[in-house]
């Protein structure tokens, strides 16, 4: 029991640290692509501490206060339900508690809480961003869900542990090679999940300056940034488990999540932004069709 508690606590702290560090690295990488020096890699930690120590005197109702907690709760649930390192039972945390469908639901739960809180702030930019975000989410969730179903049906298991275990016979047994179309659909859905360009219509700095968190400040914003870092790492580990054979060691976990994290950063740096309808149309047709191809192949 104590070991479990320690493992859960270490997982959360470790994921938060890794998430913030990845965020700092991504800012540096983006700066280098722009030909700039960029901030230090620890900048996100500094920002977080500064925000945490600022005063907060903004109130927009109960849901406004609860939204960052929803976000963090959703992120922690996803994080704890995915096994981290194969073979090390202590890192499986609460992965016994549910399957991939529950995970997809919980991923939606955090974002929905955030949407309700941002909507409650009453700022027009936040409300526009929420409507855009929910529309886009319903688009990429479709292709992602179909891809996951195709993989689960193909491997005859809905448990993440089972999906990871089925990929342990070498690189060629990774789902990205066994289910190439579903993987392509899921990886395309990963871009809007990480709010990367060309799908960055939710934050859209030039249109709705910062979107949902417009009214959030100080400690609330620090919770939101922590939630985002945690959720980012949780999604990375989930994708590594679903498509890239999981992680057989800590080194493998860090390398795989780092490389996967760089994928939306690099794509994001060189693409302009879609309009909302373009983004939704693309997500409804291209990744969904790709995922469906593998689902039909598996069903036949």
């Amino acid at each position: 029991m104590l070991a479990n508690f320690t493992s859960v606590a270490l997982t959360i702290v470790g994921a938060l640290t890794w998430g913030l560090l990845l965020g700092g690295i991504s800012r540096s990488v983006t700066a280098r692509i722009h030909g700039r020096m960029g901030p230090r890699v620890t900048q996100n930690f500094i920002d977080l501490w500064k925000l945490f120590r600022k005063t907060s005197s903004i109130h927009h109702g109960g849901m406004f206060w609860m939204a960052p907690m929803f976000r963090i709760t959703g992120a922690i649930c996803v994080l704890l339900m995915v096994p981290l390192v194969i073979g090390q039972n202590i890192t499986y945390n609460m992965s016994f508690a549910g399957d991939v469908f529950l995970l997809i639901y919980i991923m939606f739960f955090g974002c929905l809480g955030m949407a309700l809180g941002a909507g409650n702030s009453g700022h027009p930019y936040a409300v526009i961003a929420v409507s855009r975000g929910l529309a886009q989410m319903s688009s990429y969730e479709l292709s992602f869900s179909i891809a996951v179903v195709a993989i689960a049906v193909g491997l005859h298991t809905f448990k993440i542990e089972g999906i990871v275990a089925a990929q342990q016979a070498g690189i060629t047994s990774w789902n990205i090679f066994r289910f190439p179309f579903a993987s392509a659909g899921a990886l395309l859905a990963f871009l809007p999940m990480q709010m990367a360009y060309p799908f960055g219509i939710v934050l859209a700095p030039q249109e709705i300056p910062i979107g949902p968190p417009t009214e959030y400040s100080s400690r609330m914003l620090s919770f939101m940034l922590s939630g985002r870092a945690l959720f980012g790492v949780a999604k990375l580990i989930l994708f590594v488990s679903l498509l890239f054979g999981g992680a057989s060691s800590w080194l493998s976990l860090f390398v795989k999540t780092f490389l996967l994290y760089m994928y939306p950063i690099v794509v994001s740096s060189v693409f302009p932004r879609f309009r909302t309808e373009q983004s939704i149309r693309f997500l409804w047709f291209i990744p969904t069709t790709l995922a469906l191809v593998d689902l039909v192949r598996v069903m036949l």
């Binding site: 030909g35 700039r36 020096m37 901030p39 230090r40 910062i210 417009t214 009214e215």
Partner: peptide, 19 residues
Amino acid sequence: TSRFDMERFGIAMRPTPRQ
């Protein structure tokens, strides 16, 4: 811009006075 790059000092623009 890349010539002056104020982000290297940790300075960033925020679109809302709240932040």
